[in-house]
């Protein structure tokens, strides 16, 4: 059994038995070897369910929104991406830091459940070590810049308008409007999504390419400066739409236009589209 898993169970058991938290969120084994879905443990005798292996892909932080007014504290196992997600939720006023005990895990990357190679979202990870934590398991590693994660975006930018349009039309033609991308996303924390307010007319319920595009683009723009690059949207998409390419395009432009910004690395610096500078680039004169 791996050292992280032993430590996880130990820490969870302690926190629960001391009453510091009344539940922990980690991962457990699913039916198949390549499935490690999230686990919710409230009983210290059940900590043996917790596991740590290369398929712990699902983010844990978004689950904090399920019952925002619950009384007890939650012990949350958090990898680098989960820690940024927690900052995201704190900054967006969704959760209170004092209600969470963050058990950081220094993550070395997960495997894709189909290809068994390192998962795409982990290949592009810049902060494998949690940026915020109360307890830490494992040896921290420094953040890596990974400018190569913008490569696909840069290549697509070079293409002709027609080609770009055909590419995205083909992608959104596949969309089945399951909203898994939205529901898994820690930046998608609106109490009611515009996509659910269809009587208002933001978005039609029709399943066709045009409406799918309106949904996808609006969602991408809405999280533009708040995306923490966890890559969960692209991972959960059942039809494989490269949603991170849209997010990365926005992140890349925002960095070029308004300076270096990494969402969720801290919970203080306001997202770039929520502030301004008098010296911003002028293109509209």
């Amino acid at each position: 059994m791996n050292a992280i898993q032993i430590k996880m169970r130990e820490v969870a058991g302690q926190l629960l038995s001391l009453g510091e938290v009344d539940r922990v969120i980690g991962w457990e084994k699913g039916r198949f070897a390549h499935q490690s879905p999230p686990a919710f443990i409230t009983d210290e005798t059940k900590v043996e369910r917790l596991i740590w292996d290369e398929y712990c892909l699902t983010g844990t932080a978004k689950y904090l929104l399920d019952d925002p007014y619950r009384a007890g504290k939650t012990g949350l196992f958090a990898r680098g991406c989960d820690a940024r997600a927690i900052n995201r939720l704190i900054q967006d006023g969704q959760v209170k830091r004092e209600n969470i005990v963050i058990i950081g895990i220094c993550c070395t990357g997960m495997s894709d459940s189909v290809s068994r190679q390192m998962a795409a979202k982990c290949c592009d990870c810049t902060h494998p070590t949690p940026v915020v934590y109360d307890l830490m398991i494992g040896e921290p590693v420094k953040p890596v810049a990974k400018p190569e994660r913008f490569k696909a975006v840069a290549e697509l930018e070079q293409k002709a308008a027609q080609e770009k349009s055909e590419y995205w039309t083909r992608q959104f033609a596949k969309c089945i409007r399951c909203y898994a991308c939205r529901n898994i996303c820690p930046a998608c924390n609106c109490r009611e999504c515009f996509a659910d307010q269809y009587r208002v007319g933001w978005l039609g319920k029709q399943h066709h390419t045009a409406e799918n595009q309106v949904f996808g683009l609006t969602r991408a723009y809405h999280i533009a400066d708040r995306c923490i690059e966890c890559g969960e949207c692209a991972r959960v998409c059942p039809v494989g739409i490269p949603l991170m390419e849209l997010n990365r395009k926005l992140i890349k432009d925002i960095q070029q236009l308004f300076g270096d910004y990494h969402a969720g690395v801290d919970s203080e610096t306001a997202p770039p589209l929520g502030r301004y500078s008098l010296d911003d680039m002028e293109e509209f004169m």
Binding site: S165, W168, Q213, L217, L250, L257, L273, D280, F284
Partner: peptide
């Protein structure tokens, strides 16, 4: 300050639209 926000928003939006082929 409204138009300062406008400026930031649409600098980004314009590039996004170009990215999807508009």
């Amino acid at each position: 300050t409204g138009n300062y926000y406008t400026r930031r928003r649409f600098l980004v939006m314009k590039r996004l639209l170009e990215f999807i082929g508009i």
